[in-house]
Each structure stands twice: as C-alpha cells, then as structure tokens.
C-alpha cells in the first residue's frame, strides 16, 4: 500500500510499482481531468503540480511520490467557482477541442510561480531575472505543452490576462 496526497486528500492505494502517477490519478482515483496524450513526456497534457512544481505525471512512478503534495486540475476550481486561470481560458477562448487544456492551465500556474521566483528562460535577454513576461517569454516557458488544435495565440492571451488580473489585485498566492 502506498499513501498519495492529491488535492489535500490522503489516499491509500495498492498499486503495481509500474503505475505512473498519471495512471494512478486517472485509473485508481478517477481524477480524469489530467489527460493522457502521448504518455512519453512530449505533449504536457498530463501536467500536474508536485509540491508546487509542474511535472509530467506520465514520466514518474506513483510509488515515488509518497508524502508529496500532488495538485491536479480538480484541485484548482469547481464549475461553480472557477480558478481565475480557468476563467481566463474561457474568457479568451484558449482552446478548441479542450484536451490539452487541463495541462495548459496547471502548467501555466507552475510557470507563473517560476517567473515570480525570478527564473530566466531561454529567450530572456539577461539571466538576472529582471525580465518582463512578454508573449515570447510565455510561449517559450509553455513549450512543454502542445496544442493539437494550435490555439496558441489565445492560450498566451489567457495566461497573460490571468497574470495581469492577479497583478492588478496585488495577490501573491491564490491557488490555495
């Protein structure tokens, strides 16, 4: 038996060691918001937060995450009370088929935390962290999330708007 903490709920699971974190979420906890796209870490549809960091849940074993805090799309908002990033994807039409959307949203939240921590990116002019979050920066930092419908322009708009809204409100942490 392993203990897995997902969206602040502790679960006891009897898992084959081969079970990926993604399969544990979908097949054992019925948290099917996290999607399986490629299952090889290339598309980002399976993105979740582990201890606040975004990772590909398909490329890690559930058994390696005992004691970690896993956050999935289900842990962000509800249909009645959307997380601001979820609302922003709706407002800006940041999807077509929607399959990559949970991964995009979770990845965007992890990405914004990385940006606020001052992490540079491949396209940052300087490594000193004093960069603006331009559309080019958002695209580079989100390159681990593929959208088969190519809704990229509106995904960038949605992320930028959610980030601007949070900056306007002066909120530092809204996930929890």
């Amino acid at each position: 038996m392993i203990t897995l903490t997902v969206n602040d709920t502790v679960h006891e699971l009897d898992l084959d060691p081969r079970t990926s974190l993604l399969d544990a979420l979908r097949d054992h906890l019925a948290l099917t918001g996290t999607k399986k796209g490629c299952d090889h870490g290339q598309c980002g549809a399976c993105t979740v937060l582990v201890n606040g960091r975004r990772i590909n849940s398909c490329l890690t074993l559930a058994i390696m995450h005992e004691g970690d805090a896993v956050t999935t799309i289900e842990g962000l908002g509800t249909p009645e009370a959307l997380h601001p990033m979820q609302a922003s994807f709706l407002d800006h039409d940041g999807f077509q088929c929607g399959y990559c959307t949970p991964g995009q949203i979770v990845s965007a939240l992890g990405m914004l935390d990385e940006f606020r921590a001052g992490w540079p990116s491949h396209v940052s002019e300087s490594l000193d962290g004093g960069t603006e979050l331009s559309d080019e920066e958002i695209s580079e930092r989100m390159s681990g999330n593929i959208c088969r419908c190519s809704a990229y322009p509106n995904i960038v708009h949605a992320i930028r708007a959610a980030r601007d809204e949070r900056a306007d409100k002066g909120e530092s942490e809204e996930r929890t």
């Binding site: 870490g41 590909n56 390159s143």
Partner: peptide, 10 residues
C-alpha cells in the same frame, strides 16, 4: 534553459 521543457527540467 535551452534543453527540454519546464516540466522536464523540474
């Protein structure tokens, strides 16, 4: 920073 993706680098 030129390698992989944000998720993989984490």
């Amino acid at each position: 920073l030129a390698g992989a993706s944000g998720q993989l680098r984490n």
